[in-house]
Design a protein around this nucleic acid. Structure first.
Length: 423
DNA sequence: GCGGATCAC
DNA sequence: TATGGTGATCCGC
C-alpha cells in the first residue's frame, strides 16, 4: 500500500475492534467503506480537515523542539506540586454509577417488532444511522454510518426509521427507576445517566433481608461503578453489552486501572486530542502521567489540568444538576438550495420553529446565530448579539435575514449553494 | 462578542 | 441518490 492509500485508510476506516466481526473481516469492511466514500464531496472535506489537524500537530512539534531542559524541569516541578495537592483532595467515599443502555433505539424497535430480533438491523435512514443491533455490528455497521454504506456491508440489513417520541417515552420509564435509587441522577441523553448510589447503599443496610432482592429487568444495560464520574463512564464500557464492572474504591485499584487505560476511552478526549497526544508518544494514561510536564507547556491550562486529573484517576465525585439551557437551535439538511428566495423562506421557517420552541419553554435570547453548510460540507456560523432579548419570529428573522443576506452578497455573483441551514 | 473547532450522544 | 441534529465548551482573536 502506498503512502496516500495508507493515509486514506486511517481517515475513514473502522477503528475499533471490540465487536466479533464474524460477518466480514476488517480489511474487507474498510475496503467497502473506502470505495463508497472516495471522491465524494464529503470525503474531500474530511481530507481537508485532516490536513488542518496535521498542521496543528506540526506546529505543536515545533513548539516542543524549542523547549529547553530547564523549562521542562520547572514545568515538571509545578505539575508535581499540583498533583500532590490534587492527591490530598482525593475522595474515594462516593459510589458513582454510570448506566448506558445497549443499542437503545434498536432495542426499543426490537421490543415492538420481535421478528427483528435475529436479523441485522439499524435505526435511521439511508443517509444516516443512529445505532445498530449486535448482529449488524458483526458486519461493521455502526452508529453515525450512512445507511447506504451499511447496506453495502450488509445487504440484508433492515433499516427502521427513527421514532424519537417512542424512545423518549421508554427513556421516561427508565428514569422513574433511576429516581428510586438517586432522585438527583443526571441524564446525559435518552439512554445514558449518572447516579450517585452512596446514600441508597447506606439506607439499604437497614432494610430487611426480604427487600434486598434484585429487580428483574429485561432490557440490556451496561453499568460502571466507581468512585467518580470519569471512572464510572469508562467502566460501563468495559463489559458491554449487558455487563457490569466495578472498580474498587481504593487508590491502588484506581491507579492500576488508569495505567493501561487508552486516553481515547476518556470522555472529553476525542479523535483530534488522541492524535495530538499520539504524536507525543502518548496513548495510555500512564504515558500521560509521565509526560505531564511537557503537556503543561504545550496545552492550555484548562486542557492540561484535565489531563493531569485523568492521569491520577480523578474525576467529579458529585453529580451536578443540569443547569439552565444556554442556547436553543434547529437545523436541517436538504438537497442543494441555490435560489435566494428559497433560502430566505427556509430561513424564515427555521426562525418559526425556534420561536415556537422558545415559546414552549418561555425563553428569550440575545444572540442570534445563523449556521450554513455549503455543498462542499464547509460550515460557517454568523452571529449577532442584541442589546435586548428577543423571542418572536419577526424579531429573530429580522436578524437572521440580515446575516443571511450579507453572506449571499459576499458570495455574489456566485450563488450560495447550501445543504444545511440552522439558527 | 465572534467564528472555528472539538466533543458527546 | 445518499454522510445528522442539538447543545456545550474552548481557543484565539
Amino acid at each position: 500500500m502506498d503512502h496516500t492509500a495508507k493515509k486514506n485508510k486511517r481517515l475513514m476506516a473502522l477503528n475499533d475492534n471490540k465487536a466479533g466481526m464474524e460477518g466480514l473481516d476488517r480489511d474487507k469492511i474498510n475496503k467497502i467503506i473506502m470505495e463508497s466514500s472516495k471522491g465524494s464531496r464529503f470525503y474531500e472535506n474530511e481530507l481537508k480537515r485532516e490536513q488542518q489537524v496535521n498542521q496543528r500537530i506540526e506546529k505543536m512539534m515545533l513548539q516542543k523542539a524549542q523547549i529547553t531542559e530547564q523549562q521542562l524541569k520547572k514545568a515538571q516541578a509545578e505539575v508535581e506540586r499540583m498533583a500532590t495537592e490534587l492527591e490530598r483532595s482525593r475522595d474515594l467515599s462516593r459510589v458513582i454509577v454510570h448506566v448506558d443502555m445497549d443499542a437503545f433505539y434498536a432495542a426499543v424497535e426490537i421490543r415492538d417488532c420481535p421478528e427483528l430480533k435475529d436479523k441485522p438491523m439499524a435505526v435511521g435512514s439511508m443517509s444516516m444511522l443512529s445505532t445498530s443491533n449486535y448482529h449488524a455490528r458483526k458486519y461493521g455497521v455502526r452508529a453515525a454510518m450512512p445507511g447506504f454504506i451499511a447496506k453495502k456491508l450488509c445487504p440484508n440489513l433492515v433499516i427502521v426509521p427513527t421514532n424519537f417520541a417512542k424512545y423518549r417515552a421508554v427513556s421516561g420509564e427508565v428514569r422513574e427507576i433511576f429516581a428510586e435509587y438517586d432522585p438527583h441522577f443526571q441524564s446525559v441523553s435518552l439512554d445514558e445517566a449518572y447516579l450517585d448510589f452512596t446514600d441508597h447503599l447506606e439506607q439499604r443496610q437497614s432494610w430487611p433481608e426480604s427487600l434486598r432482592t434484585h429487580r428483574f429487568h429485561a432490557s440490556s444495560t451496561a453499568t460502571g461503578i466507581a468512585p467518580n464520574m470519569m471512572l464510572a463512564k469508562v467502566c460501563s464500557d468495559k463489559n458491554k453489552p449487558n455487563g457490569q464492572y466495578r472498580l474498587p474504591s481504593t487508590r491502588e485499584a484506581v491507579m492500576d486501572f488508569v495505567q493501561n487505560l487508552p486516553v481515547r476511552k476518556v470522555s472529553g478526549i476525542g479523535k483530534v486530542s488522541e492524535k495530538m497526544l499520539n504524536a507525543l508518544g502518548i496513548s495510555s494514561c500512564s504515558h500521560l502521567g509521565q509526560q505531564m510536564g511537557l503537556l503543561s507547556l504545550l496545552f492550555s491550562e484548562t486542557a492540561w489540568h484535565h489531563l493531569l486529573q485523568v492521569s491520577l484517576g480523578l474525576g467529579s465525585t458529585f453529580i451536578p444538576r443540569h443547569e439552565e439551557r444556554k442556547s436553543m437551535s434547529t437545523e436541517r439538511t436538504f438537497k442543494e438550495l441555490s435560489k435566494v428566495e428559497e433560502q430566505l423562506s427556509l430561513c424564515r421557517e427555521l426562525c418559526e420553529d425556534v420561536a415556537e420552541d422558545m415559546k414552549e419553554e418561555g425563553l428569550k435570547g440575545k444572540t442570534v446565530t445563523l449556521k450554513l453548510k455549503n455543498v462542499s460540507f464547509e460550515v460557517k456560523t454568523r452571529a449577532l448579539t442584541l442589546p435586548y432579548a428577543v423571542a418572536t419570529v419577526d424579531e429573530i428573522f429580522a436578524v437572521a435575514k440580515d446575516l443571511l443576506k450579507t453572506e449571499i452578497d459576499n458570495e455574489s455573483p456566485q450563488p450560495l449553494r447550501l445543504r444545511l441551514m440552522g439558527n
